[in-house]
Amino acid sequence: MRTLIIISILSLLVGCVATNKDYTKFNNAKPSSILIVPAVNRSVEVTAPDYYLSTISIPLAEQGYYVFPVNMVKRLLEDDGLSDADLVHNSPSEKLASLFGADAVLYVVINRWDAQYLLFSTTVTVEIAYTIKSKSGETLWEHLQKMVYTPQNNSSGNPLADLIVMAVSAAATKAAPNYVPLAHQANNATFRYPGPGIPPGPYGKLRISQQNNSTISE
């Protein structure tokens, strides 16, 4: 009984704590709003950047940042001849930020978004590189996150991880692997704080008041 309690508490701790990064630059820049530009695709799956884009707003907004509407940003860039994400990523973040009035820009590169078919199982892999740059062009934060799903990995020893894996396994079928749940999982792992993620933004510890749209502190 006692062992069980200790094990469960430990797994909770392990699940919620990860290595710390240097947040000096991030905290100095203190961005309130983040512009998410379309992802650069280094995988062979052509649909990856669009599908990925649908997953990224929620974790950042829930972390307390103003997040520019991703589809609108994507369409505005396309309308001005910047449908190539590489072109967007190569343009100075100062310019992007000032045009949209953003404090920071999040660049996402999809390194892997693939499924490998083996005899008895399918391994689905999503690997994403995240970089946040300030409006003055400084890199404030970066993270590389890889998520692998293999149905044969029955238990990881972490009940929460197992739960997530089970949820993912429902979606990742051999016929048509769905990468989106894995992308969600990668985002969740990435933006966890404390953890590899970013500190809460201006709306992180605040509550939007009911009537007047102003914010009041907690």
Binding site: L77, D79, D80, K95
Partner: peptide, 11 residues
């Protein structure tokens, strides 16, 4: 019509 010329100068 082009919807808008907002970010032309970016590149």
């Amino acid at each position: 019509e082009k919807p808008l010329a907002l970010v032309k100068e970016v590149t």
